[in-house]
């Protein structure tokens, strides 16, 4: 049961940078599901060495839009999520431009328009770190082996078999069967001429042959067809008769006597 899987290698610090590589495949690969708008934003914030709690939104928005353009230029379908993020950034930027109403007596300071985005980025970052933790745990676990299965473990396999497993097994059986039949044909191949010769010599000896019995001894479909054609051929060319002694009774091939 060898499972062929592609080895996916990446490193956590530089994975995001791949977006800028010129090779088109590389970009599509990295952009796949991994690099979402949040990843891109985190990357830009790091690159600009900005403080996540005080994002220079105008600058980051401009950079962000540049990358979207780059992606379009490279003919990568820009996922909807990236466009949503563009809109969010622009909205935050415009809200920051508006003069803030001074907080009324007893009211709390209005929330920074960037707050929600920052929260999402921080949350996202947490799970990226958690993914990294899982990665290292899995690496350690891959160095640990349990004993090879013993015979009785097979019992457990039954539980996990699905209808698809069954279907697959059935297909295998069919495949094998196909092969077997092919081998049979090769070994037993017979030409029409050979069949006619065989039939003729048997008739000569027996003078009378029961068709049903003749056919019953033949194994493959090909032989049956050959025997049938051979019978017709002999009936046509030689002095034999097909005799049916009663309605629905067996058919006999009878060699006609010279005098008959």
């Amino acid at each position: 049961m060898e499972e062929k899987e592609e080895q996916i290698v990446f490193d956590f610090e530089n994975a995001k940078a791949k977006i800028f590589r010129e090779s088109r495949d590389e970009i599509q690969l990295t952009l796949g599901e991994f690099a979402g708008p949040l990843d891109l934003l985190l990357y830009l914030i790091r690159k600009e060495q900005a403080n996540i709690f005080d994002i220079p939104i105008a600058k980051i928005t401009r950079e962000y839009l540049n990358y979207i353009k780059l992606m379009e230029k490279l003919d990568i379908a820009v996922a909807g999520e990236f466009l949503v993020m563009s809109a969010t950034l622009i909205e935050i930027k415009s809200r920051l431009l508006l003069p803030q109403e001074p907080a009324a007596e007893g009211e709390e300071e209005p929330e920074d328009p960037r707050q929600e985005l920052v929260d999402r980025l921080l949350e996202h970052q947490k799970f990226k770190n958690a993914a990294e933790m899982l990665w290292s745990r899995a690496t350690v676990e891959q160095a640990v082996f349990t004993r090879a299965p013993i015979e009785t473990d097979e019992n457990n396999m039954e539980v996990s078999a699905t209808i698809f497993d069954l279907f697959e097994k059935f297909q295998q059986i069919m495949e094998r069967r196909k092969e077997e039949i092919q081998m049979d044909i090769q070994r037993e191949e017979m030409t029409l001429a050979e069949m006619i010769t065989t039939l003729r010599s048997r008739l000569k000896k027996a003078k009378k042959l029961n068709l049903l019995e003749l056919f019953r001894n033949l194994e493959t479909k090909q032989e049956l067809v050959l025997a049938f054609i051979a019978t017709l051929e002999i009936v046509r060319t030689e002095s034999v008769r097909l005799v049916q002694e009663s309605t629905f009774g067996d058919i006999l091939i009878v060699v006609e006597t010279e005098t008959g």
Binding site: E3, E5, E6, Q7, I8, F10, F12, A15, G32, E33, F34, F127, K128, A130, A131, M133, L134, W135, A138, T139, Q142, A143, V144, F145
Partner: peptide, 25 residues
């Protein structure tokens, strides 16, 4: 693990992609 792998003739199997790991987290 090196000795065991040498005997079993296996190599570390493919790991999950970063996307899958993040989703799993």
């Amino acid at each position: 693990h090196e000795d065991v792998r040498a005997f079993l003739k296996t190599r570390p199997s493919a790991k999950l992609s970063l996307a899958a790991l993040e989703t799993l987290a």
